[in-house]
Design a protein around this nucleic acid. Sequence first.
DNA 1: AACAGCCACAACCGCCTTAGT
DNA 2: GACTAAGGCGGTTGTGGCTGT
Length: 208
Amino acid sequence: MGKKTAKSIFNLMAPRNEGKGKRAMNRGAWTPDEDRKLAQCIQTHGAKRWKAVALKSGLNRCGKSCRLRWLNYLRPNIKRGNISDEEKDLILRLHKLLGNRWSLIAGRLPGRTDNEIKNYWNSHLCKKVNQKDEKPETSTTQETVGQNQNAVDRGAMLEKEVAVNEIDNLDVNFDVDEFFNFSEEPSGFDWLNKYLELEHIPETTKSL
DNA sequence: AACAGCCACAACCGCCTTAGT
DNA sequence: GACTAAGGCGGTTGTGGCTGT
């Protein structure tokens, strides 16, 4: 990460299927104004009933799009960028356990989204794991590597309960209660207003 | 300086699951 | 129980910026 400027972040996506005239929905990159409207609507109506949110916000967006934008970027307590070594290690371990079940993995990394983890995996960790896979004799620290394919199969078969039990046995130190505590939210939407006022450049993004 | 290829990542797509009737 | 709509998830795509030549 860290290669994106604020400008690129907010203008990254040109609308797809433009000119195809398939739908009249807005698509592509979200504008700060749309973010603001969506946040205000969610503040009023809550982060559920996405179709209703999409309609009431006045955004010409589908519910899915609103949900994604909220969950991945606007929701409180979200962490952006700077994935620590600890988090990296945890992702590797959880991926070994669960396979490509990004939402489950994200659920155990407070503040991280499934999309972010998925992207991080695909652009960073996936290559590393594959590299080590090709040179198993060099892997000294990671018993996690080299078993990745099995992990995917295994992960696909694991039920949540099993996964949680296994995770409890990992030698990574973390507070389980904290792990599953998603209730804590900052009061109000001050953070969002600041975010939007700062010409939409979160500190975490700026430093990348 | 110009170009090509690569990288990072936001957003869309389609399938599956869940909830409501 | 069957049907439908909405939500959730993982895979994939498209784009701008970066880097190397």
